[in-house]
């Protein structure tokens, strides 16, 4: 089943005034286009392209 944007928002508990829905749908369309640009296969050799960083170790106690 394919959910509509309105159904997705309702499922998340978000209440959008009817008058604002056209703008939100346009925004959703823009974001879907943006996301589509970044989907698809990537060579594993390039990974990791996003990382978790630990803080630098504290200076040793003298």
């Amino acid at each position: 089943m394919t959910e509509t944007t309105e159904q997705k928002l309702a499922a998340l508990g978000l209440r959008v005034p009817e008058t604002e829905l056209p703008k939100l749908l346009r925004l959703a369309g823009d974001m879907e286009k943006a996301a589509a640009m970044m989907r698809g296969p990537r060579p594993y050799a390039e990974e990791p392209l996003s990382a978790f960083r630990l803080p630098l170790p504290a200076a040793p106690r003298s």
Binding site: L14, V16, P17, L27, M31, M38, R39
Partner: peptide, 28 residues
């Protein structure tokens, strides 16, 4: 306000994988 509500709610529709792909693309 209406502008803020729409812009902020739009973020609810971004899938986790798409957000992570954006961070990966950012690194590139």
């Amino acid at each position: 306000g209406a502008f803020g509500r729409v812009r902020l709610m739009g973020g609810a529709l971004v899938r986790a994988a798409d957000y992570i792909n954006a961070q990966r693309q950012r690194a590139r």
